[in-house]
């Protein structure tokens, strides 16, 4: 992971790029993003109306050359249209950088992700573990997952990461551990959103250990062939695609194995609305909105009816057995 800082500079400081780099940069960013960043607004306006009202060119950034080497996992990937890079990186819930959807993209540049280490508790390998030791860059996989937010929208994102199970095995949790808890960084100097108590900071999430060991659970370090942008949870985040998005915790600084079920942030904020499991379930409505349908960001236009939400976000085959015999209405 030591090359991260070098690559980061490529992504964020276009002004410093020599001209020879223009073409790959354009390829990488995708046409829309390229046009926007380089100020060709006239051209953008000429092409955008049709796209924006009738559905966007969501696949614009999906055929980019990868800068982060990874093996494509076709078995666990969906072949649905990928949500455009721009939408994935500008429509985020990351309250540490503000509660508006566009706040994280605007504010998260203050997050320092290099160097980064993760504190491990409740395992043989206790203590601070550097990112390079935690994630073996040679093991990186690309997986295209659906992401379903509890707010009723969804995306399709090509993540890059390693199976959480591999990391857990390496860390060797204590024998009596039944849960794994994750904690997000909470540094008010880097995260302006912490100044307001919208949630009980630091942000915490947790999984039952068998959920964490499920092959779908991913510890991601990248998306769209590159390192995670800060607003998407750099440098290390969880991705559990059969659960509502808020379970996929961002910018992890602590992983703790424990016997007792940890308390989790949204559950603490409102237990009636956000359960510990928070599996995507079209039959169990959020008290304030229906979960039966969802809007696919970027792809669906004003005139596209919302699509039906699938049980476990379409991953029932892989995860339904984890909840056999459980009342999913009571354990939502």
């Amino acid at each position: 992971m030591s090359k991260r800082s070098i690559k980061r500079r490529h992504v964020y400081r276009q002004s410093a790029l020599p001209h020879t780099e223009l073409t790959p940069e354009a390829d990488y960013l995708g046409r829309r993003e390229f046009i926007r960043r380089w100020g060709l607004t006239g051209a953008a306006l000429m092409v955008s109306p049709a796209f924006n009202l009738l559905g966007k060119d969501a696949n614009a950034a999906s055929t980019l050359p990868a800068r982060l080497n990874s093996r494509f996992n076709s078995v666990l990937s969906t072949d649905e249209t990928r949500t455009g890079y721009e939408e994935v990186t500008t429509y985020n819930n990351y309250y540490e950088f503000g509660t508006g959807k566009s706040d994280p993209a605007r504010n998260a540049h203050t997050l320092v992700t290099d160097p980064w280490s993760v504190e491990i508790q409740g395992a043989a390998r206790n203590g601070q573990v550097g990112l390079d030791d935690l994630i073996d860059e040679r093991e990186l996989e690309e997986r295209v997952y659906r992401l379903r937010c509890v707010e009723g929208w969804s995306m399709v994102i090509p993540w890059i990461g390693v199976p959480l199970a591999d990391v857990i095995e390496k860390l060797q949790p204590d024998k009596d551990a039944r849960y794994v808890e994750f904690t997000t960084l909470a540094d008010p100097r880097q995260m302006p959103g912490l100044a307001r108590n919208v949630l009980d900071w630091p942000y915490r999430e947790a999984l039952r250990l068998d959920e964490a060991m499920n092959p779908l659970s991913l510890l991601a370090v990248g998306l769209y062939g590159n390192y995670l942008p800060n607003q998407n949870g750099a440098p290390l985040r969880l991705v559990v695609p059969w659960k509502y998005g808020f379970k996929s915790i961002k910018s992890i600084v602590r992983i703790r194995f424990t016997r007792e079920r940890p308390s989790t942030s949204w559950n603490l904020a409102n237990a009636r609305e956000y359960g510990f499991y928070s599996n995507v379930n079209p039959q169990v409505d959020h008290p304030r909105w229906s979960q039966a349908r969802e809007r696919r960001i970027g792809e669906d236009s004003f005139f596209t009816p919302k699509r039906k939400t699938l049980m476990f976000n379409g991953y029932a085959e892989q995860v339904a057995h984890l909840y056999k015999g459980m009342d999913l209405r009571a354990n939502f």
């Binding site: 955008s48 109306p49 796209f51 009202l53 721009e86 429509y91 959807k101 809007r295």
Partner: peptide, 12 residues
Amino acid sequence: AFTGQLGANPTE
């Protein structure tokens, strides 16, 4: 709405 200035989730 017509020029795509309403962000990633224009409906909302």
